[in-house]
Computed example of a mutant assay.
Amino acid sequence: MLKTIILLTNTVQQQQPLANLLREHNRDLSFCSALRAHDLAAISPDVLRDARLVSFANDIAVSEKFLLQLGHGAYKFYAAPTQYPGLPPAPDESDDDPRCVSVIAQSMTIWPDFRKVVGLETVTIPEGTAVAERDRLVFSRLAHLFWRMSGMIAGEAADLPGIIESDESQRPSLAMMN
């Protein structure tokens, strides 16, 4: 039974609004807050067994060991220019002024080939938009995607349905790992 949502965010200010939104769909949820990898490491394995991780606008790498301990999966909400689908732009490519950005909700697994996109929106940035305004537009679409999916995130489903996913028949099992 899903009891806890672990919110991995970029800032402390993002925690409460996201928790409030998820609580509207499941009043019984409790929440753990995390900003960094060491915050995740401090969470008890007993909590992880009945938990789901939701990473929102945070690029912290989550360890394989942590992902394997989660009883209800992990999902990442992030934005990426469409010319780098699924990847943040390289630091030396920041001169690019992407006019089209995707906001993505994706499952997090230890097998990269088996991650699936569970939510996707594209944002077209008007030409001549200032960087701060572009960031605000993209972040507001990311927040909208989270809002749209909040019922599924807070629900009991062990695995959210993918809108883009790999062949399910090829998904590794625990037996394949041994």
Rank of each mutant, 00 (worst) to 15 (best):
L145P: 13
L18K: 12
D97G: 05
I163T: 02
G162L: 04
M1A: 13
M108L: 15
K76C: 05
A61E: 10
G86V: 02
A157Q: 14
Q14G: 06
L35T: 12
L22G: 02
D59P: 00
Q106M: 14
M177S: 09
V12Q: 13
E24F: 10
L137K: 11
S94L: 14
R52Q: 00
S173C: 02
A175C: 04
T9A: 08
L145Q: 07
S63I: 01
S173V: 04
D59E: 11
Y78V: 02
M1D: 08
L21C: 12
V103Y: 11
I104L: 14
P45H: 13
G151C: 09
H72M: 07
L2P: 00
P126C: 15
R49E: 14
V54S: 06
S44F: 06
H144F: 13
A130P: 09
Q16V: 15
A61I: 02
V47N: 05
I5C: 01
V101Q: 14
H25P: 04
Q13N: 06
V118M: 04
I164Q: 06
S102E: 14
G119E: 01
T82S: 04
L87F: 06
F114N: 10
V117P: 07
H72C: 08
Q170S: 11
A105E: 05
W147T: 15
Y75D: 03
L21Q: 14
L7D: 03
A37L: 15
W147N: 15
M176Q: 11
T82H: 08
S169E: 09
E64L: 10
A132N: 13
L2G: 04
R52V: 00
P85G: 06
S107N: 12
P81E: 10
A34Q: 11
V103T: 11
N58K: 10
L70M: 05
V131N: 13
G155I: 14
R36G: 03
A42T: 00
C100M: 13
I60H: 13
S94I: 11
K116T: 07
V62S: 04
I43D: 00
V12G: 00
A74L: 10
T82E: 09
D28S: 15
H144P: 06
I43S: 01
G162T: 02
F146D: 03
D167Q: 06
F66V: 00
I164N: 01
Q13D: 12
R36E: 12
A42F: 07
E64F: 06
I104A: 11
S169A: 07
A80V: 00
T109Y: 10
D50I: 04
V47C: 08
L40C: 05
V123L: 10
Y75M: 06
I60C: 15
E156G: 11
R134K: 12
A130N: 09
F114H: 15
L137H: 10
Q14V: 00
A74K: 05
R36D: 09
S55C: 13
D95N: 02
F139G: 05
R148C: 15
F139K: 08
L68I: 12
R23G: 08
S166W: 07
S150R: 15
D59F: 08
V54I: 14
L137P: 12
K76T: 01
F114I: 02
I6N: 03
V47L: 12
A130Y: 05
L22A: 03
G71I: 01
D95H: 07
Q15N: 03
E24I: 11
A90R: 09
N20H: 11
L87D: 06
